[in-house]
């Protein structure tokens, strides 16, 4: 790499014999970049920024713009004239409010369940297990991520079936259970990383000062690992909010926001309305991230 990273020392001077020769184009470029920090930085950031701007924010912008169009209901062609109708329908028709609240409920439930399961697991991994066991536990947590989403969801379908291992039947609770299982590793790993950084000495100090288990947890462990839990919750919350496949497989007759979006694209070919519906989870996530930011969790990640 010819571009020196900011902060790295200048390359050692060339061997004496080469000093007389004029510097090659590579060296001149390196020198110029070294002198102009702004150029250096913009070159470094150009690719990721282009990616972020075009592929990521661009598609979000396209989504938002599309939401103000409509389709010719018969031929399915896009009608590119401005209309509020899609947002009006999303906000005024009751079923979309119901579906949005249900999706929100599922996302919250999955996040809470995962947090409750993941914390003791991560604590055991980080603080109680021997280094050797620790490695195996991390592998065990990661293993389910190697299996296909669909295989795992269908496995839950078989387990939940009335003659299956669990036999709970299908529905919203089945969906929450399946999603909790699917996203659990995304909660365990950030909490594990957070607990790893928590020095054991702090726990010992708490014990020396007379704090029992619960008090040590409440006053020492919890405040220090809270950002990690929030980081994990961003994963579980957003993944649950956008999911539409698990609910199709184990959800019985219920539907979530993702299904409404999918049906409007897949069945109705109504991209603008789907885009309007899709802004609901985007708004929910923005509110959630703003709330997370206030906790300061994003700074300490």
């Amino acid at each position: 790499m010819s571009v020196p990273l900011p902060g790295t020392p200048v390359a050692p001077a060339s061997p004496p014999g080469r000093m007389d020769r004029p510097p090659g184009p590579r060296r001149r470029l390196a020198a110029a970049l070294h002198r102009h920090a702004g150029v250096r930085l913009s070159l470094l950031l150009a690719a990721p920024l282009a990616w972020l701007g075009v592929a990521y924010l661009g598609s979000l912008a396209a989504l938002f713009v599309t939401a103000f169009w409509s389709t010719d209901s018969f031929t399915g062609d896009l009608v590119r004239t401005f209309t509020w109708a899609n947002f009006h329908d999303v906000l005024t028709i009751e079923v979309y409010r119901t579906v949005a609240l249900r999706s929100l409920g599922v996302a919250v439930a999955v996040t809470l369940i995962d947090a409750v399961i993941a914390f003791p697991m991560a604590f055991a991994m980080a603080k109680l297990a021997s280094p050797r066991t620790q490695r195996w536990l991390v592998i065990a947590v990661l293993t389910p991520l190697w299996a296909s989403y669909l295989v795992k969801a269908y496995a839950w379908r078989v387990m939940l079936s009335s003659d299956g291992l669990l036999g709970w039947g299908y529905g919203l609770w089945a969906t929450i259970a399946t999603l909790s299982y699917l996203w659990l590793p995304y909660m365990i790993l950030p909490i594990y990383a957070g607990l790893e950084r928590l020095p054991d000495s702090l726990l010992e100090a708490a014990g020396d000062l007379g704090a029992r288990g619960w008090r040590a947890f409440r006053t020492v462990v919890w405040p220090l690992t809270f950002p990690a839990i929030v980081a994990g919750s961003v994963f579980t919350f957003s993944l649950s909010l956008g999911d539409y496949i698990a609910v199709k497989i184990v959800g019985g007759r219920s539907q979530l926001i993702g299904n409404v979006v999918y049906d409007n694209i897949g069945a109705a070919n109504n991209l603008p309305f789907a885009a309007a519906v899709a802004t609901i989870p985007v708004v929910i996530m923005l509110v959630y991230l703003a709330a997370v930011r206030r906790t300061g969790a994003l700074e300490s990640l």
């Binding site: 209901s73 028709i93 079923v95 299904n259 409007n264 109705a268």
Partner: peptide
């Protein structure tokens, strides 16, 4: 028309 059928289907499923 079919787009109204689709909206109604979403409402039916609730």
């Amino acid at each position: 028309d079919y787009s109204e059928w689709t909206r109604a289907w979403t409402e039916i499923k609730g």
